[in-house]
Amino acid sequence: MLKKIFIDGENGTTGLKIRSQLDNHPGVEILRIDEKYKKDPAAKRDLMAKADISILCLPDAAAREAVLIAQETATRIIDASSCHRTAENWTYGLPELCTNQRQRIANARLVANPGCFATAAILLLRPLIQHQLIDRDAQISIHAVSGYSGGGSTMIEKHKAPGRTGDMVFYGLELAHKHLPEIISYSGLKNPPIFLPSVGNFYQGMVVMIPLHQINFSSALKILQTLTSYYADEPFVTVSQIMIGSTIDTQVKAGSNTIFFHVLADHSFYKTGRLVLLAKLDNLGKGAATAAIQNMNIMLALPENQGITY
């Protein structure tokens, strides 16, 4: 029997991506709400009552309201907004986080989909902090650039508007980006990192970079070995060898759920001890829509890769 899925906010950027993926998913049936009732609590409640899982693709305030409506039903929730990622009684929907995370997701009623930037930063930092290759109290900087689809319909319209100038927009310059709480909570860092996100003049794709200083050659090898070992059995994580003098662009296969990790060193590494940890992913794939589908599959005891692009 097909599992029933309700996407609340299916016409938004993330919702459309999830819907298009699930249209070809062999294990589920999508419950659709009439456009004229999309803000009607009673109509939502009726669909949630029929749904095995309701996926919320809504702004934060609307997501909070939807969760209250869902409490009147037995539906399980995957929330793609940012408002429940560190909330009590919610499970963080990042299966690769640690050994037991898949089981926690499988048993959860309330799952918070991770942020796109946070997914990369946490998965780079957590293994290295656990293995004491980065100190928990280290002062970390994170630099990132994302495609403009990450900002939803408003940002997409701005980037497509005639007469737009500039190829890069830096934001979050108050150093209080909404992804910081989850990065701190799940990476193991004690101190808030300096996080400098930006948006490029391209639709989707993302690169996240973390520079490290005073790393000797032995530690550099341990960093690579730790990342490789930690994610050895993860189908959606690829770890490359140490790269020197490389060029990496922001583009990945559209809709891909794979995250690519690189360890970059300069030509004078033996003197400088400088490394850069780099992650590349699709902000609409592993950073949003396909991550939600991965969580959905786990919650429904379906094959984890079903309906997902690598």
Rank of each mutant, 00 (worst) to 15 (best):
F202V: 08
G188W: 06
D137C: 11
L189I: 09
L173K: 08
A161G: 06
M206F: 05
D249P: 04
T250P: 00
H179S: 13
N201M: 05
T154H: 07
D249N: 15
P197F: 10
H213D: 09
G245H: 09
G205T: 04
Q132H: 15
H159P: 00
Q241G: 08
Q204F: 02
S218M: 08
M155L: 15
P211H: 07
V237R: 00
E234N: 10
M168R: 13
V145F: 01
G151F: 01
H213Y: 11
V239C: 12
T250K: 02
K160P: 00
M209R: 07
M243L: 13
P181F: 03
L189V: 07
E234W: 01
V169G: 03
M243H: 06
K160D: 08
V207K: 01
V207R: 02
D137F: 06
G188M: 09
S187D: 11
P193C: 11
Q139L: 10
G166F: 04
P162W: 03
G150P: 00
H131A: 14
E182F: 04
M168Y: 13
L196E: 07
I215Q: 04
G200C: 07
Q241N: 12
S141V: 07
S218Q: 13
M168E: 11
A232W: 02
S146E: 09
G200P: 01
R164M: 12
F236C: 09
V207D: 02
L173E: 15
G163F: 03
G151R: 00
D135F: 05
G205P: 06
K222S: 14
T247A: 13
A232H: 13
L189W: 02
V239M: 04
G200D: 05
H179W: 02
E174S: 14
Q204G: 10
N191R: 12
D135T: 10
A161D: 08
I140L: 07
F236P: 01
A161E: 14
S198P: 07
A161I: 02
V145D: 00
V239F: 04
H131T: 14
D167W: 06
Q241D: 12
K160S: 07
A220E: 07
P192L: 04
A220K: 05
L224A: 01
S229W: 09
D167F: 10
Q241Y: 04
I223D: 00
T165R: 12
